[in-house]
Design a protein around this nucleic acid. Structure first.
Length: 509
RNA sequence: GCGGUAAUAGCUCAGUCGGUAGAGCGUCAGCUUCCCAAGCUGAAGGUCGUGGGUUCGAGACCCAUUUACCGCUCCA
């Protein structure tokens, strides 16, 4: 584990040192959990997005893409459940320094009272044997009645406090109930504070007439609210999907682990609309498709695993994560959720607009069910990057740090290197770059010994180096050096583009 | 958000008892070099995270703050 921590630190500093990721606002001491992508980082990130987009929109006739605004009507977040579901009231115990969710503390307390009732029931059931009537017992036994009423009154008080956003009352409830911290055993509580996962901002230039908006915490809602627009203008027939790549914002309590959990991040989501009753079949289909996509990058299958959700979110009837083995352990990379008709139905309710699909074949109209695939761009970046980082010892005992990025995702595809900086080799190299730069992002380097230049390209993950030597000047052939194997082959300049293209082709899936 | 640790050149780090800042690597310029980093010469690069304080004098001591890491806490 200590080794992995070391490795993770090295990966982070490599990312910075080689222009992949910089801490945001670094010259002003940085901004917590916000990062900028550098000159190579942006290429890798764009390549990841492009690779995903093609796999969805280009490879599937029935999937189209959209790009919706980050600002959306505030009611959307009521409809989606984000306003209610993501306001966690938090409270700290001053002695143990432990933090709890206030609602969980109260629910635990209720559960304890519930236990007492169950104990009475068990005792009575043993006493009366098979004549025992639980319903009647619950309705008549004085102590059980008393506890049942207690639970009801706690729940009522708690719900009222939450509905009125009265956090003082929540704290008072905890104090009145005599709830103690399970660790310190004391009642020395801080005030209850609301933690809202969504960032808010003001629309309108004058503060008095401005309305509060949220920065979207997920891109999915932009798809749902455009369901009809896309379906009608694209003449889409169910089943069909809408894909989107875009930024989302969440006010995480603790945002750590580099770019794994950032406050501003980017998602690649696809919502697939299906007839009611077929959602679990499609859920299985997309599970399989998405795993194939990951494996097509050539990363070892052992780095991935499934994580089925036991506790489902308010909108889902099936959910599974694809987890990746990051240097800090297996963590969620992508989620595949069967979201039912929750979102579209909810938007029907809140907007008053019908969000239905008329199926001409079956002659019926229904609210489609949705299967979602949702993957983090930044997490995929981190997965690919951390998996690629390799320190190896070569046969001659020397060390090499190489980014074994999937070639299709590598920022620079080809480095063109004159073996020496004379005899017309630099000029020849420039001509070759002109040949290649339409198809591949190229880099020219003539500084330092050739070996050092190879290592520099290894460090940024360039899959191919083309080297111009004396022979090149005689017969128009160059050496093509492959990053991972370090093997060189002699290739004629006119075949270069073809050779490189083949090496950049991803595995089919 | 709480507790602990840390912050010196692009990177990794040294800096003695408090006396005006150093190395290696990297970068840049030039030389050399026909294929896998560490040949040669030269140069640039630091108000020591930031703000206060103690002191004749602070990179070092004290306080605050920011950021990162570790442990809690939270995570649709």
């Amino acid at each position: 584990m200590a080794n992995n921590e070391e490795l993770f630190k090295k990966i982070i500093s490599h990312a910075k040192e080689y222009g992949y990721i910089f801490p945001s606002s670094e010259i002003y001491d940085g901004l917590s959990a916000v990062y900028d992508y550098g000159q190579y980082g942006v290429e890798l990130k764009n390549n990841i997005k492009n690779y995903w987009w093609k796999s969805m929109v280009q490879m599937n006739e029935n999937i189209v893409g959209i790009d919706t605004a980050i600002f959306m009507h505030p009611t959307i977040w009521k409809a989606s459940g984000h306003v209610d579901a993501f306001n966690d009231p938090l409270i700290d115990n001053k002695d143990s320094k432990k933090r709890y969710r206030a609602d969980v503390l109260i629910e635990d307390h209720i559960a304890k009272i519930e236990d007492k009732i169950l104990k009475e029931i068990r005792k009575a059931s043993e006493r009366f044997g098979k004549d025992f009537d639980e319903e009647k017992f619950r309705a008549t036994h004085p102590r059980v009645l008393e506890n049942t009423e207690k639970i009801a009154s706690i729940q009522k008080r708690f719900n009222e406090a939450l509905n009125q956003n009265d956090l003082g009352e929540v704290k008072k409830l905890i104090e009145d109930l005599g709830i103690v911290c399970p660790v310190s055993g004391t009642k020395n509580w801080t005030d209850v504070r609301q933690f809202n996962l969504m960032f808010s901002t003001q629309m309108g230039s004058v503060s008095e007439d401005s309305g509060t908006l949220f920065l979207r915490p997920e891109t999915a809602q932009g798809i749902f609210v455009n369901f009809l627009n896309v379906q009608k203008t694209g003449r889409m027939k169910i089943p069909f999907g809408i894909a989107q790549i875009g930024k989302a914002f969440r006010n995480e309590i603790v945002a750590r682990q580099f770019i794994f959990r950032m406050r501003e991040f980017e998602q690649m989501e696809m919502q697939f609309f299906v007839p009611p009753g077929e959602e679990l079949t499609w859920f299985e289909y997309w599970k399989e498709q998405r795993m194939k996509w990951h494996l097509s990058l050539g990363i070892s299958a052992s780095k991935y695993r499934w994580h089925p959700h036991e506790k489902l979110a308010h909108y889902a009837n099936a959910a599974v994560d694809i987890e990746f083995e990051f240097p800090f352990g297996f963590k969620e990379l992508e989620g595949i959720h069967s979201r039912t008709d929750f979102d579209l139905s909810s938007h029907e309710k809140f907007s008053g607009k019908k969000l239905r699909y008329f199926d001409a074949e079956s002659n019926e109209s229904y609210v489609p069910y949705v299967v979602e695939t949702s993957i983090g761009v930044d997490r995929t970046f981190l997965a690919v990057f951390s998996n690629a980082y390799t320190e190896e010892i070569l046969a001659d005992g020397s060390e090499r740090t190489v980014l074994r990025l999937p070639a299709v995702l590598a920022p620079i595809k080809v480095a063109v290197l004159p073996l020496v900086k004379k005899d017309g080799m630099p000029e020849k190299a420039r001509l070759i770059i002109d040949e290649l730069k339409n198809d591949f992002l190229c880099q020219y380097d003539e500084k330092d010994a050739i070996g050092r230049r190879y290592r520099r390209q290894d460090a940024i993950g360039t899959p191919y180096c083309v080297t111009i030597d004396n022979e090149t000047l005689e017969n128009d052939t160059v050496t093509l050096r492959e990053r991972d194997s370090m093997l060189q082959t002699r290739v004629s300049i006119e075949n270069l583009r073809k050779e490189i293209s083949e090496g950049l082709r991803p595995l089919r899936f």
